[in-house]
């Protein structure tokens, strides 16, 4: 897996519309509040290191001097006990699931490589996550009955992407229009763009054609 991201929409930034009719006051307020990530209040220092390493592998951002913060918002949600509406009968409550899941990922790293997850090289971290997703675990008992794949996909990855892909930088890199109220869009065709949308993207394989 390559660790370079080729941005098809290089140069496009949804935030350039901040002072246009694509942004309303409440959206500006939400995005402004998100500039300052909250301090850690829920996880222990040890859990926090594992969580940050997990977020870095789920959404690697090597090209950014200041990566989009993800872990602080997970911590804040758990501190507030903000729910998702669902607790699978096979899963404990969210706070317990996160603690148990991070500890189990760390335990798997120790059993396989003798090193905590946060200190492993990225390829080894990826190997751990793939093993968790396949539930082919060297230390299945560390999970204490927590379903490993369900934790990884439905608890960890879904939460991580739900935080990353609402960030303006993530919206920009995929060419999404971003905030769009009150103006919305006039041209609905894929090849007919409003001037306030990202110009057509560029992909390597298009050059080859």
């Amino acid at each position: 897996m390559s660790d370079d991201f080729s941005d098809p929409y290089e140069g496009y930034d949804v935030l350039s519309k901040w002072d246009t009719p694509s942004f309303n006051d409440q959206t500006r307020r939400v995005l402004a509040a998100r500039r300052t990530p909250p301090a850690r209040r829920f996880f222990t220092q040890e859990e926090w290191r594992t969580l940050q390493a997990l977020c870095d592998r789920a959404i690697p951002q090597p090209e950014r001097a200041e990566p989009v913060p993800i872990a602080p918002w997970i911590d804040a949600d758990l501190h507030a006990d903000r729910g998702t509406g669902t607790r699978y009968a096979t899963m404990p409550a969210a706070r317990t699931a996160w603690r148990q899941g991070l500890a189990a990922i760390d335990a798997e790293a120790l059993v396989r490589f003798g090193t905590p997850f946060a200190d492993l090289a990225p390829e080894r971290q990826d190997a751990i996550l793939t093993a968790v997703d396949d539930e082919s675990l060297a230390d299945p008992y560390a999970w204490e009955g927590l379903p490993a794949r369900r934790f990884l996909r439905d608890t960890a990855l879904k939460t991580i992407v739900s935080i990353y892909y609402v960030h303006p930088q993530a919206m920009s890199e995929i060419g999404y229009g971003g905030p769009a109220s009150p103006r919305g869009y006039l041209r609905l065709g894929g090849d007919r763009l409003d001037p306030w949308e990202a110009p057509q993207g560029h992909w390597p394989e298009d050059e080859d054609r």
Partner: peptide
């Protein structure tokens, strides 16, 4: 992105590249 990770378990640059095809 939730649909992608929920149905494939994708993560890492692979996930970012797949999401870059959103449009």
């Amino acid at each position: 992105a939730g649909t992608l990770v929920g149905s494939t378990g994708a993560f890492g640059m692979d996930l970012r590249e797949r999401m870059a095809r959103y449009n």
